[in-house]
């Protein structure tokens, strides 16, 4: 059980980064469906950078910068050029998949350098790691996982405890009102789409650098789309995103576990679980009408100052 939960943490980390990234983006009122593409861009650029330099931190940085660049393309098209957000997001995914596949062509099957692999090997956090049960599950993992915890805490503090976080909420809820009160709406949308993109890129990098530690075609395998759904499950709250990512990470590795326990259910049925669960969740979450669970009111609605 402990082993299963520990593996769940690993499986949930890419989902966590991508979900929090998409939450940051959506809080500014932009619906970026290109998460899958952003993760792929991050996965390959992280891998290529780490492979070329042998430096794990540069790899992580490369993934974040590449993800942010993808976010910038999205922001430019949807904010400045007012393109349709749904279609632009899908295009970003097509582009990202092509980009990752091309860049990764010569890397297929190659393993990350030793220095990177040892950097991302599990380390126990003093004291916390010694707590029975909780320690081995949560606090004897790799530094990238801890970075994920940190991101959740920082983003939560930013959303609920800072002035900029409050402004961001205003931009997402009512861009016109935020604009009227002197918030630079365009800047907020750009910055948060880029930061969100960077986080999605990090989620991809976790897949390629740590989880697989070998480059393979389509390494992200649909996790970006699950992240988009998890945002709804988490009702735009980073803490709930952690819970959601954990649940879905568990579902995604359940098949292997059941088989090793001698329970034979077709892998394909088990594979359906995360998607079926997502559907159940969006149906259930449409039933609850509590105010804090609602999406930002301006989500997906473009804001044009001169059309106010």
């Amino acid at each position: 059980m402990e082993g299963f939960l520990a593996a769940t943490i690993v499986a949930s980390t890419p989902l966590l980064f991508a979900t929090v990234g998409e939450i940051v983006t959506e809080k500014s009122g932009l619906l970026n469906l290109g998460v899958e593409g952003l993760m792929l861009i991050g996965a390959i650029m992280g891998f290529v950078t780490a492979f070329a330099t042998g430096d794990p931190l540069l790899g992580v940085l490369g993934a974040a910068v590449a993800g942010a660049a993808g976010g910038l393309i999205f922001a430019f098209l949807t904010v400045s050029l007012r393109a349709n957000q749904v279609v632009t997001g899908l295009t970003l995914t097509i582009f990202g998949a092509g980009f990752a596949s091309f860049m990764g062509k010569t890397y297929v099957g190659l393993v990350v350098p030793k220095a990177v692999k040892s950097f991302f090997s599990p380390v126990s956090i003093p004291l916390l790691g010694d707590i029975p049960f909780i320690g081995p599950v949560f606090f004897q993992r790799d530094v990238f996982v801890y970075f994920g915890y940190l991101v959740v805490i920082l983003v939560t503090l930013y959303f609920y405890k800072t002035r900029a976080g409050l402004n961001l909420k205003a931009v997402g809820e009512s861009a016109a009102a935020a604009d009227a009160s002197g918030v630079n709406v365009t800047l907020y949308k750009y910055v948060h789409t880029c930061v969100g993109g960077a986080l999605c890129g990090l989620g991809g990098a976790y897949m390629s650098l740590v989880m697989m530690s070998v480059w393979q075609e389509n390494v992200v395998a649909g996790r970006g789309w699950i992240a988009v759904a998890l945002v709804i499950f988490a009702s735009w709250n980073p803490i709930k995103a952690f819970v959601g990512a954990f649940l879905f990470g568990g579902l995604s590795i359940l098949g292997f576990r059941l088989q090793s326990m001698g329970i034979h259910i077709s892998q394909y049925w088990v594979d359906m679980l995360p998607y079926a669960a997502t559907i159940v969740i969006i149906i259930l979450s449409s039933r609850k009408n509590r105010k804090e669970n609602q999406p930002p009111s301006d989500l997906g609605i473009p804001y044009f100052r001169e059309e106010r």
């Binding site: 393309i73 098209l77 050029l81 393109a83 349709n84 279609v87 632009t88 295009t91 970003l92 097509i94 582009f95 990202g96 998949a97 092509g98 980009f99 990752a100 596949s101 091309f102 062509k105």
Partner: peptide, 15 residues
């Protein structure tokens, strides 16, 4: 994948 990228680029411009 190059063709996919070209597709993506053309779409970005048309959008």
């Amino acid at each position: 994948s190059v063709a996919d990228m070209i597709q993506g680029i053309i779409l970005f411009f048309v959008l």
